[in-house]
Nucleic acid binder design. Structure first.
Length: 432
RNA sequence: GGAGAGAUGGCUGAGCGGACGAAAGCGCCGGUCUCGAAAACCGGAGUACGGGCAACUGUACCGUGGGUUCGAAUCCCACUCUCUCCGCCA
């Protein structure tokens, strides 16, 4: 949520930001609502003040044995009615204002390239070249089935399209990746590991900005009004909801592996083959609560932590700086990391690293106290995948496939997998 | 699932419908004392919003939402959460 104070102070900046985002201009309506509720609020406070004064007088008189005069009571009744009316009006205005603010995306940082869609994203750097195989390579959906490690039919049998199962070396490879990533981030990058609920309450989804606007993409249990998380960002953001973090605690660095559930309604028909876009997947997520002054530098470090995974796995990758129109709702600045997959011959997004500035903190009412006795401030929050498992699996399987149909396991994972190669269950028949 | 108890400030914990933003203790911050610390003593300190250049000032907040009343931390209703016991269960 953006601050109404900022709209008051610099309406032009907000107007420009929303335009860069491709949003309709909300400023006029915001300012009108704001002025109206402040007027109601001030009047209600004044009448209340009067009422409180008379109340005290009644109390004093009463303890001196004097009951209040009927006309005094009558005035109090009248004041009560006025207060109730003004308050109802102020409350309605405040709710509409909040609703409007909740519907607005974060303001992009000044350096974010302006553009309406992914065509305007800027390629910041590229490490390595898109690898070419010197034999006809296979996409992972074929490799996975031939190796007997990914089963799409049975996934669909259990849960429908866009679900899959892994088995044997495939399941082990994913578990190894998860352990290795968590170990790397905790041991070398300073993160604290969290284990978290995968279902959360409605107000938690609202705190993170997924509800009400993005209900379409969420799975939901109606009986208990519980929602399946689309990313660990949701529960982590809400850890400190409605709290004031004591002095000296920031920065807080967290990493968590959770399943992520996405209905992908908006992407119906896209990426239907393989495990590139599925309804349930695992993701290792990094998350930071930091002081506002350091969030810009922290985003660069966070990005580096995600890139380190790519480097050690031997990937070729590139870093994109997203333009204003392509960024997520809560982000003020976002880097995407894409790795090259030689089988489907695509750059796959494996990480999205964002500085959400104070947007989530304000929305979820998370504050911190800079020093003992100091005024509470809003921290900045950052999140980044580190990394999303299915697409990492894709890249490993496709890039490391061998002419004989086997797949070489990257060196760093071998202590975790216990094997250095995945081989087909039987020698592949000639011609497949 | 059944039965019961509870929710007040950073924590513990008082609070006959009117003087209550709320006793007291602990903790915290500042000061006196001390070479320094501890102890003792003195003082300070909640959060949000409105008005004001500011000093300041007004209002709200005792789990949440309603209700009764001139007036609610206090009375009534609903909900949420926590704890204890029983049952069931990985």
């Amino acid at each position: 949520m953006i601050a109404i104070e900022q709209v008051r102070r610099d309406p032009e900046a907000v107007r420009r930001a929303m335009q860069a985002r491709g949003e309709p201009d909300p400023v006029g309506e915001l300012l009108e609502l704001d002025a109206a509720w402040r007027r109601d609020r001030t009047q209600a406070d004044e009448i209340r003040n009067r009422r409180n004064q008379v109340n005290r007088e009644i109390g004093h008189a009463r303890s001196a044995g004097q009951p209040p005069a009927p006309e005094v009571i009558e005035e109090m009744r009248s004041l009560g009615r006025q207060v109730a009316q003004l308050e109802a009006s102020a409350q309605a205005g405040e709710e509409r204002l909040r609703e409007l603010l909740l519907g607005l995306p974060n303001l992009p940082l000044a350096e974010v390239p302006v553009g309406s869609d992914s065509d305007s994203n800027r390629i910041l750097r590229q490490q390595g070249q898109p690898a070419e195989l010197d034999f006809p390579g296979l996409p992972h959906w074929e490799l996975g089935e031939r190796l007997g490690i990914i089963d799409f039919q049975r996934g669909a049998k259990l849960s429908g399209s866009r679900f899959y199962t892994t088995s044997g070396a495939g399941a082990r490879l994913e578990r190894a990746l998860i352990s290795w990533m968590l170990d790397l981030h905790t041991a070398e990058h300073g993160y604290t590991e969290l284990a978290l609920p995968a279902v959360v309450r409605r107000d938690v989804m609202e705190g993170s900005g997924n509800l009400p606007k993005f209900a379409d993409n969420l799975y939901h249990d109606a009986d208990d009004d519980l929602w399946l998380i689309p990313t660990a960002e949701v529960p982590i953001t809400n850890l400190y909801r409605d709290e004031i973090i004591p002095p000296g605690r920031l920065p807080l660095y967290y990493v968590a592996q959770t399943p992520c559930f996405r209905r992908e309604k908006a992407a119906a028909g896209r990426d239907t083959r393989g495990i590139k876009r599925v309804h349930q997947f695992n993701k290792v997520e990094m998350y930071q609560f930091v002081e506002p002054e350091s969030s810009a530098a922290e985003l660069e470090r966070l990005l580096g932590h995600a890139e380190e995974i790519c480097r050690r796995l031997g990937f070729s990758w590139r870093v994109l700086e997203l333009c204003t129109g392509d960024m997520g709702f809560a982000a003020a600045k976002t880097y995407d990391i894409e790795v090259w997959a030689a089988g489907c011959r695509e750059w796959l997004e494996v990480s999205s690293c964002s500085n959400c500035t104070d947007f989530q903190a304000r929305r979820a009412n998370i504050r911190y106290r800079p020093e003992p006795g100091g005024r509470p401030r809003l921290p900045h929050t950052l999140n980044g995948s580190g990394l999303a498992l299915p697409r990492v699996m894709i890249a490993i399987i496709e890039n490391n496939q061998q002419p004989d149909g086997s797949v070489i396991i990257p060196e760093v994972l071998r202590p975790y997998t216990g094997f250095d190669r995945i081989t087909p269950p039987q020698p592949p028949a000639p011609g497949g």
